[in-house]
Design a protein around this nucleic acid. Structure first.
Lengths: 396, 396
DNA sequence: TCTGGTTAGTAAATTGTATGAACTAATGGG
DNA sequence: CCCATTAGTTCATACAATTTACTAACCAGA
C-alpha cells in the first residue's frame, strides 16, 4: 500500500537531511512550544544538528520563535511554534451536493472558505466551476501575501493508489476521471503540490494531522453521508494512509451486515449502506432526493416512524463501528459526515450499541474513544490541504 | 500502530548506512539473482555504494555470489543471492493443540522441524517443554555450524504492541503472560533477537516475506482454526504489520455477521466464529473437543448433515473474506489454518461465495487472488522466524 | 552586586557516508 | 585483434551529523 509520506527505501545525505528536517517539523507540530534542546532530546539528534535545521526552518517560514520557557535554573529555552503567518495550503472537496474550498495556515486553521450548494454535473463543467471558485478564494485578503504550498482535492470515490485518478464516483456517475488534469486546463492554479484524494481519506488525514490535543497513534474516520466510507491514518512523524491495491480500503459501506438483506446499489444484498446512509434513510422515510434530508427529518419532528428509522440506522452504525474496531483496532474512532446533522437521534443509538456490545476482548482492554464531528462541512477539504502540507514538509 | 521495521524518524550516518544495507538486502530477497549494477538501478544508489555494501554483506554471510549473467554485450554481471548456508533463524508456535518448532535459512526453507501434539497446560510448564524442544532442535545436524539470528515465538492471542507480552489467549486460559521471560528462565536459548508475535500476524508475515513469486504489495492472511484470526502485511522493503492500539487488529472472528445470532464465547452474538471456526463446527456436528475435527469429519464421510454444516461454514467464510476485502483491500488474500484440512467441502463454498458476491466496485477492478494454504502446520512458526530475519536485517 | 551552578544554544574540528569521475575487468561483434 | 559495451572498483570530494568546546542567559545564594 504505497504512500507518499514514508521515508524512502534508500538514500543519500540529502535524504538524511530532509528526513531530519521533516522530523523536527513534525515534532514541533505535535508538541508546540518545544525548545531546540527539547527537540534534540525527543528526536535523539544533537543540539547542534537541531540548531542548524531550526535555523533553516525559521528562515523558510515554517517555524517561528515564541516566548521564553520559565522553568527555574539555567538559561531558559526559546519556544518554537509552527509559523502560521507565511504559508498556506488550499483544499477543495467535490461533494455530491456541492463544492467546498478552504485555505488554511500551517496550524490547520481555516483562513478563508467557500461553500456552494451546486451538485456537480460533468467532470469538465465541475472543473471549470472549481477553477472559478479557486480564483475567488485566492483573492481573499485573508491569504494575501502568503506563499501557497499547493492544492488538494477530495473526491467522493476511490482514487487509484498508482496515479491521481478518480476511479469511480457512483453518486456522480463519473468513471476514471483525471480531475487534476481537467482542473489544470481551466486555471493556472496555485504552484506547488497538487493532489487528489478520496473524501474519507482526506478527512481522516486532516483530523489526524491537525488533531487538537495529545495525538492518537492511529485513527479511523467514518464518513457517514450519502454513502458510508472510512479512512485510516497512523504513524508518528509520517502519517500513513493505507489505500489498498485498488484504493478500496475503507469501503465499509459495502461490508455485509445482513446476509440476504435488502438490495444495495452496489449489486449485493444487506450492505451496511442499505441500513445506514443518506439514501437508505431517504428510502425508508420516502424523502425526495432533491430535498434536504436533515431539514425534512427535523420538519417531521417526533413522528414514530422517523424515530424508529433513525434508531434502526443508529444501531447499524454502532455495529459498523464495532466491526471496524475488531478489524482495525484504531486508537480512536471519529465519526463525521452529513448524517451527523441528524443529531442525537441517530448517533445516540449508535454509541449506545457500540458500548453495549463490546465483547470480552475489548472490555478487557482500555475503552477506545469515539469522537463525533457534528459539522464536517470543510473536514474533507481541510484534510486535503493537510496532505499538501505533509507532502511539502517532506519535500521541502 | 508502531512496528519495528519502519525506518526511524530521525537519523545519523549510521542509520543511513544501515538503511541502505537492509534495502539492498531486501532488494536481493525480492529479486534473487540481481547483479550489483541492477541493484544500483533499482535502488537509485550509485554503483560504488552498492559495491561497498555488497562486499560487507558477502563477508557477513548474508549474500553469496552466483552465476554470471548472460545478456549479450558488455561484461556480464555477477548474480547475487541470499546466502542460504551461513545463518539460520528459529521459530516456534505455541498452538492450542501443541508445539511446533522450525529452523530456517535466509530463504525461508525449513532445515529442521519438530511437532508435538501436546496441548499446553500452564505457561511455566509450556515454557519448560518448549525449552527442551529448542535444545533438541538446536542439536539437529541440519543447522550445525550456522550462526543463529534469534528466536521468534508465535502465540494464539493478541500481543501488546508496546511490549512482548501475550495479553490474552482465550483458548489456553492465559492472561498477560511474559512468555519470553519464562522461556529465558528455562534455557540459555539462542543468542540474538527474541520476539513474541500473534500467530496470525506471524503466519501473515512469513507468507509475505518469503512469498514465492512476484511479491504482492500487501496481503491479508486469514487463519481459520479453533478461532478465526487475521494478519495484514504490507510494504516493499520494510514490511509492516498493523497491530492497532491494543494488538487487536485482525480479530475478525468477532466481527458480527449475524446480528442477534448465536451466542459467542466472547460475550456477543452472531460473531463470525459462531458460524465458521473449529469450535462452531464441533458444536454443529457434536464432535468431542478431544477428538480430531478433520479425522471425525472424514470418518463421517458424506453424511448430509456434515455436507450441510461444511457448506454453511464455507459460505460464512466467504462472506468474511468479502468483508475483509472491502475493509482492507489487500493485493492478495491467503487462507490457512487447521480448518483447511477439511478440504474442498469447506473452502470450495467459501471461494464460490466470494466470487459470486463481488459487488460492482470489485468487479470493476481487477480480481484479487485468493491463495489457500492446505498444510499450515509450520506456517506460523516459520513466520516468527521470518520476523527474526527482518529485524536482524535492519539491525545488522 | 558578584559568583558559581545550570541549562540553552552556537562554533569549529572530526568522522563517516554517499557521490562522481576515472579507472580496470570482462564479454561479444566485426 | 580491436572496439564498443557493460560490470565493478578505486580514490578524491562533498556534505551531514557528531563531538568538543565554547558563549549566552538565567537563578540562587553569599
Amino acid at each position: 500500500m504505497p504512500n507518499s509520506f514514508t521515508p524512502q527505501a534508500a538514500g543519500d545525505l540529502n535524504y538524511l537531511k530532509s528526513l531530519n528536517r521533516s522530523t523536527i517539523l513534525s515534532t514541533v507540530r505535535r508538541n508546540p512550544g518545544l525548545s531546540r534542546a527539547d527537540i534534540a532530546l525527543q528526536t535523539g539528534l544533537t543540539k547542534a544538528t537541531v540548531g542548524g535545521v531550526v535555523q533553516i526552518l525559521l528562515e523558510q517560514g515554517w517555524l517561528r520563535e515564541g516566548e521564553l520557557h520559565a522553568r527555574g535554573g539555567g538559561r531558559p529555552g526559546r519556544a518554537l511554534h509552527l509559523d502560521d503567518a507565511h504559508h498556506c495550503m488550499l483544499g477543495a472537496e467535490v461533494g455530491v451536493k456541492g463544492l467546498r474550498l478552504v485555505a488554511c495556515n500551517l496550524l490547520g486553521e481555516i483562513l478563508a472558505s467557500l461553500h456552494r450548494e451546486e451538485p456537480p454535473t460533468t467532470p469538465e463543467a465541475t472543473a471549470r466551476r472549481l477553477a472559478e471558485l479557486l480564483g475567488e478564494l485566492r483573492d481573499d485578503p485573508a491569504i494575501a501575501g502568503r506563499s501557497c504550498l499547493g492544492l488538494g482535492v477530495a473526491v467522493p470515490g476511490p482514487v487509484s493508489p498508482q496515479a491521481p485518478i478518480l476511479r469511480l464516483a457512483p453518486n456522480l456517475g463519473w468513471v476514471d476521471i483525471d480531475f487534476l488534469a481537467l482542473l489544470r486546463a481551466e486555471c493556472r492554479g496555485p504552484e506547488g503540490i497538487w493532489l487528489l484524494e478520496n473524501e474519507a481519506n482526506a478527512a481522516a488525514f486532516g483530523e489526524f494531522y491537525f488533531f487538537d490535543g495529545a495525538p492518537p497513534e492511529s485513527i479511523a474516520y467514518i464518513s457517514a453521508g450519502s454513502g458510508i466510507g472510512c479512512g485510516v491514518v497512523s504513524g508518528d512523524h509520517f502519517p500513513v494512509i493505507p489505500r489498498g491495491r485498488q484504493g478500496l480500503v475503507g469501503e465499509i459501506g459495502h461490508t455485509v451486515l445482513q446476509p440476504g438483506g435488502a438490495l444495495c446499489h452496489c449489486g449485493n444484498r444487506g450492505c451496511a449502506e442499505t441500513l445506514v446512509s443518506g439514501w437508505a434513510l431517504r428510502e425508508a422515510l420516502k424523502i425526495d432526493s432533491r430535498a434536504s434530508l436533515s431539514a425534512s427529518v427535523s420538519a417531521r419532528g417526533d413522528e414514530a416512524e422517523v424515530q424508529a428509522a433513525l434508531a434502526r440506522a443508529g444501531d447499524a452504525l454502532g455495529l459498523l463501528l464495532l466491526n471496524l474496531h475488531h478489524t482495525l483496532n484504531p486508537s480512536m474512532l471519529i465519526v463525521g459526515g452529513s448524517l451527523m446533522r441528524l443529531g442525537a437521534r441517530l448517533i445516540g443509538p449508535a454509541l449506545s450499541y457500540f458500548d453495549a456490545h463490546q465483547n470480552d476482548l475489548l472490555r478487557q482492554a482500555q475503552a477506545v474513544p469515539v469522537k463525533v464531528v457534528e459539522d464536517s462541512t470543510f473536514t474533507a477539504a481541510r484534510g486535503a490541504a493537510a496532505q499538501v502540507m505533509a507532502r511539502a514538509a517532506v519535500a521541502l
